[in-house]
Design a protein around this nucleic acid. Sequence first.
DNA 1: GCCATGGCTAGTA
DNA 2: GCCATGGCTAGTA
Length: 111
Amino acid sequence: MNSSCIPKPFTEKVKLILKNIPKGKVTSYGTIAAMAGSPRAARQVVQIIHRTDNIPWHRVINSQGKIAIKEYEGFQEQKMLLSMEGVESDSNGKIDLDKFKWKCYSLDDLI
DNA sequence: GCCATGGCTAGTA
DNA sequence: GCCATGGCTAGTA
């Protein structure tokens, strides 16, 4: 037995947030980290997205409002998944945050 | 404990 | 530079 059966609050919160981002909206790694209580832990959000299957991942972009992944990492896939929900991005992956940013900054606002 | 990992980011130069 | 995980290792008991 190992510690993997113990709840991991930060990770669980991040997963909960990911599941609650509405279709057609995007948010950033940093925003999610802040909502989960650790404003400077954006890179942990990246890790969690990496290791978690069956979770919506494509609505997360960087704070500049751009798709953050490289071509070989699935840039086109993310772009397409977003466009299917009505989120437009230009060829550089730039998204209009005024239009598409999910306006939610606290866990309390989800529940 | 220590150390590497990582689709980042606020805030200088 | 930040910092939550997971994997590995020295070095106690």
